[in-house]
Design a protein around this nucleic acid. Structure first.
Lengths: 232, 232
DNA sequence: GCACTGTCAAGAGCACTGCTCTCGTTTCTG
DNA sequence: CAGAAACGAGAGCAGTGCTCTTGACAGTGC
């Protein structure tokens, strides 16, 4: 029921909002989130800095918008990577494609990646609306495992889940992956954190002087983690 | 050959340097690196902001000093954790203690952890002197594996290393862990990145709503990773 | 003992920042 | 068409990192 006819004002507002985000993203890519300045964005757009506040009530709100866009861009890339590779034919190839797509996106947009997975903005807590976009990668990961659920071949038995973990995982399974056991789900989370830990270490310079460039280490680890979660 | 007798000036300088770092660390803990302000530190110390520049030529230099201290504090904790648990008696217990010590330190000093393993300061590249302190955790991790080298029992054979990874790992082995194979070394790096990926995800809020609180997930994963690298 | 030299804290000031408020103007709407 | 709502621009506040100058002090050589 969205009105196709909009007033000139609404269209202008929408366009300007996009343009502000475009310019902000440009500065983000060049200088990093720390140095993203509302005044500089306004200057570049040829408007008064105060006018920006009609579109984004604060700098953090602009950052939140960029975070949302970034989560969605990354999520879309990951989902496409999983879907592209002959759906459900070869789960390991899907897993490979998923991991590569996340790393590629991260290396293409290092500052946006840092915005999502680096130090959180102090005093800033992610609003509820970021939860869904932020979940897209792990959900894509789980979808790969779900499609291959009956063929999973674990190299070593999953240790029994204990305490709160058992409850948390059991509660999660019906919501996100009813085809999987709680044990496999927990291993999925392990490889998920491993994936992002590895990418963060690479991007943030913790592998310099040892395994950098990390292309082959990354590819190798992707296979080891595929084994770990039991992908055929 | 360090002179035991120092001039009053030297002693005053040393003390003030420590005091500045102490106050900066306090503000860091309270507000985060982003909001660490030289002027606020000076204000709290009852001196002019310009005077601070005699001790640290820039804000980034002060941050570098804090980073160095933090790396050393974390490294020391990790090394002590490994040494404390009946040296070489029970490598898995050592591994457990190592992981716990890193996570505990991170939760006790979240902002300092973020300074080390979060988004790097833009335009700032770690000087050479940070390399050694930054390596202490992974070296402690490797020392655990080295002590247990002949008893390692891998649940699934390490995939052959390919391309640059094979060379990088082979070059690293004699330097950091001559008792280990390149394959085990690469797995050590995998669990290393997993450990910090998991801690970062927990601290940065990516587990909220799923596996948070993460104590049991952490403990469980530590065991799974111990299996992964073949600890008895 | 005294003058010299280098070090030091302090203050003013520059160029920024995020953000608020006011003030005309423009645009939409009843 | 008149009133209301939205808008851009400008001034201004409080804060930031950092630089430069100024005057006072401590350490050293004569």
């Amino acid at each position: 029921m969205a009105p196709v006819i909009r007033t000139a004002r609404e269209r202008a507002r929408e366009e300007l909002t996009l343009e502000i985000k475009r310019e902000a993203r440009k500065q983000l890519a060049e200088e990093g989130a720390q140095r993203l300045s509302l005044r500089a964005v306004a200057r570049e757009l040829g408007m008064a800095s105060s006018a920006l506040y009609r579109y984004f009530p604060s700098r953090d709100d602009l950052l939140t918008a960029l975070i949302l866009d970034a989560y969605n861009a990354l999520g879309e890339r990951a989902e496409k990577a999983v879907a592209a590779d002959g759906a459900a034919e070869d789960p390991r190839a899907q897993w490979r494609a998923l991991c590569r797509s996340v790393r590629d996106w991260a290396k293409e947009h290092p500052h946006e990646y840092a915005l999502l997975y680096g130090t959180p903005v102090p005093g800033y807590s992610a609003p509820q609306e970021t939860v869904a976009p932020a979940s897209r990668v792990i959900l894509a990961l789980l979808s790969v495992l779900r499609d291959a659920a009956d063929r999973l071949d674990l190299p070593s038995p999953v240790r029994p889940l204990r305490g709160a973990l058992a409850e948390q995982a059991s509660a999660l399974v019906p919501l996100v992956a009813p085809e999987l056991s709680a044990g496999v789900l927990s291993r999925a989370v392990v490889v998920w954190t491993q994936l992002f830990g590895m990418i963060s270490f690479e991007l943030f310079g913790h592998l310099v002087g040892s395994l950098d460039p990390a292309d082959d280490f990354f590819a190798h680890t992707v296979e080891e983690m595929a084994d770990f979660v039991g992908l055929p």
